[in-house]
Amino acid sequence: MSVHLAGVETPNRQGGWAPDVDRRLATLESPIRSVLEGHASSLTAGDRITLVPDTHYPFHPSSGMVTDPAVVGSIADRLSDWTDAEIGIAGATDDRIAFDRTAEYLGYPAIADRFDADLVDLADDDHRDTVVTVGDERVSIAVPERLLESTVVLVPTLRPTEDGPVSGGLRTLGRLVGSVADADDAAVAAERAVKPDLSVLDATIAYGGDPVAADALFAGPAAQIDAVGSSLLSRAVEEDPVLRRTVEAAEESVTVESVTDEPAVDLASLRRRIPEGGLPPRDEVNPLVTTAYRVYAAVAGDAVPPQFTQRR
């Protein structure tokens, strides 16, 4: 099983990020076409396509913490050239933030308008209860029907989760299903229930403790793409509870096939460029400092500021 890789040429770009979405779309057009071409027939077989980017929170796309909306727009643009299928860009409102709010801040309404796509809040969709066998356990999940009845293209960004492993397409998908199981089991179950047709890894900007302009796109089966992402973040695939059960189940090695000659992407140097770090500490204040402050306050009899006693 191979995944496709394309470098993104960024001629005359100053800095690692081009704020002009038109400019990003222009640079993405060719590499997106290149990584999708081999999958065109399977992607255009149905009459409805659902793109699932990482929109978990309105972090700036230049941080690498969310998918660049321009990548999603470029995929929608390419697909609309190939098919008349209805294209949706999907996320889900959760107990943290409404999808339409995140989508608005990230600029998705303009992208959706431009490429004649719909923004779809899967929290409003009918859900189908599904039981999936994961290892020795049966995991019950509630899956938005749209994911079961359309061609699904995951579009994760290259970043780790708070717990450390790659966030990837499978965990992005797992966040969209309802389940009382733990998040990793839900992600594996979601993959088995939905059987996503393709995953396009947005590695234009990667985050590994700091952002880095990696200027690369990968496309292929979801588990294999996540395995590549995990490797680029210097995480061991066998230590990832999601990948351990999805990549091994496929019983195939992953090869990366470059589908463009220019710009050439050297995976080893790309891996070296991406930092191996994780997300910042959850607390507003560095936990070590919070502890130090409490010790200080006890010794000195000082007040402890609220920022040093609570989570944001």
Partner: peptide, 24 residues
């Protein structure tokens, strides 16, 4: 923090003014 702690402890004994939110 260490400086403020030391100052506060000394000032408590000597009746001087103590810092509030000293390290920040």
């Amino acid at each position: 923090a260490a400086t403020s702690a030391l100052t506060n402890v000394v000032n408590r004994f000597t009746g001087g003014e103590t810092d509030v939110f000293g390290p920040t």
